[in-house]
Amino acid sequence: MAAASIEFKGSSFTLSVLHLRTSALADIRADLIKKVAQAPDFFYLVPVVVSIEKLVGGIEYQALKTLVEEFNFTFVGFTGDVATEQRKLIRELGFSFVNTTKVSTATKTAIAQESVTEIATSAECRLYTDKVHRGQVRSGQQLYAKDQNLVVIGSVSAGAEVIADGNIHVYGSLRGRAIAGAKGHHKAQIYCQNLEAELVSINGNYWLSESMQQHWGSPAFIHLTDSELTSSKLI
């Protein structure tokens, strides 16, 4: 079968949008003259969409199209968050109506928040490499795994401090302080074979030893559930 001579595909383009603040054509003309005078070549045959969102009531659509084309713009259609009836009217008059993705300020904020969460999630999903320490971490010593997980093959003594931007694993007793997710990472966890810590902290939430009594002296891991520290049995 021979390929079709044409094909329709969606593509995104950057189009200039002319936002109208008034429906008075004379005012619009005056401002357009000023604007185009600044850079006549730049605006020559530039496709333009006219936004009527800020207008109260309608406008003389055909007259506006003629005005825009007078300044050598290529008129594409109208846009804006307007009532369905108005859109219908515009279409009936023979103009295209272009829908934009940014609809209203409220939606805009929602979208913005969504993208922030997305970024945050991807930071947490980042694959941390491991910093491995063999042997005891003695009292008075401090270990920091910057942008890494920290693995201690040995015990962390009372008075010692282990810090990681990722998770902390202690293959021995955790008797000192352990601070995971130090740069802010609420999914960071602390694992140890014997929980006897002076302090554990994840993403700024901390527990002193009295809060760890449930799994004291046994293999456990500490994690955050809804910003609350929780300890669970490891095996």
Partner: peptide, 13 residues
Amino acid sequence: VRDSDRILGMLAS
């Protein structure tokens, strides 16, 4: 014991 632990850290470093 705590102080000995500290000294052991010093011996190692």
